[in-house]
Design a protein around this nucleic acid. Structure first.
Length: 274
DNA sequence: TTCGTCCTGGTA
DNA sequence: TACCAGGACGAA
């Protein structure tokens, strides 16, 4: 569910409240989201204070000691919400980190595809190596994108979703980026000319930046660090807009199934021919 | 590269 | 009641 803009929003929301906070207790309500097990997790986390909080791809990474990281992935329906008290009812709570100031960091996750891990920086580095470049970083140039796309010959849409190719893009922002670049989701990745790569590069930057400015896209599950929905769902051109008119040409937005997931596109603006 | 799978609930 | 869902991994 949460893609780069959603995770970025959560991290920015939580950072000022979590800096320097200690974990004084842990409540586990569903073992599945904690592969380490509660006892090992407790021994690694209790008494540690959070010194940094950042995002990489769709991961939330908290430094809890010199060489120890708490790594959270929200999966499809995960939420990380900070509450000053536990009176507010939250559904699907799987784990709670109790902080030294009495606040609770709640991990809720309806479908339980997300998880929490604790690892050393070396272990994280090995994971990090297998993730593609951050699309909003300076390192993500048109030439870098061109090289990444050239290395794959399959349909471009699933390539954009592949975290080993580019970090942080999910189904929403992939569809929106392809629409904005006027590229059909089934175009072979290595068939784009330089002008098309340029369009895609600027479309990816623009759609992700817009998503962050709008504090994420909420259809049902996503909430920010305070438990509030985002607003980017009101700015989507194609994602989940099947049957509605294209904003550029008025044609009916279509949906097709690609690599097991929905792709939304305008059949006129996003022609499959080069 | 594609498919199935992990899960649960909302919606048509 | 069937279908759909924003992710990621491993197997074929």
């Amino acid at each position: 569910m949460p893609e780069l803009p959603e995770v970025e929003t959560i991290v920015n929301d939580l950072r000022p409240y979590l800096m320097g906070r200690y974990v004084v207790d842990v409540s586990l309500l569903d073992a599945k989201i904690l592969p380490l097990g509660l006892d090992a997790f407790r021994s690694l986390v209790l008494g540690r204070s959070i010194s940094t909080l950042k995002r990489r791809a769709k991961y939330i990474i908290a430094n809890i000691a010199d060489d120890l990281l708490l790594v959270v992935h929200l999966g499809m329906t995960g939420r990380l919400i900070l509450r000053a008290n536990s009176n507010k009812e939250e559904r699907f709570v799987r784990l709670v980190l109790h902080l030294d100031n009495g606040w609770h960091l709640i991990y809720a996750d309806q479908r339980k595809f997300g998880h929490l891990e604790v690892m050393t920086s070396a272990e994280w580095a090995r994971r990090d190596e297998r993730i593609g470049p951050e699309p909003l970083s300076d390192a993500f140039t048109v030439n870098v994108l061109a090289g990444l796309l050239q290395a794959h010959k399959g349909a471009i849409k699933p390539i954009l979703l592949n975290q080993r190719v580019i970090a942080g893009i999910g189904n929403i922002y992939a569809d929106e980026s392809l629409y904005e670049a006027r590229l059909h989701p089934e175009r072979p990745s290595n068939s784009l000319n330089l002008e098309e790569v340029r369009r895609l590069h600027s479309a990816i930057s623009a759609t992700l930046a817009r998503g962050i400015n709008n504090r994420g896209t909420t259809f049902s599950d996503y909430r920010d660090g305070q438990g509030r929905p985002g607003a980017n769902q009101n700015s989507l051109a194609v994602y989940r807009q099947e049957g509605k008119p294209c904003l550029m040409c008025g044609a009916s937005i279509k949906r097709l199934r690609l690599a097991g997931r929905s792709s939304h596109y305008c059949p006129v603006c996003q022609e499959s021919e080069t």
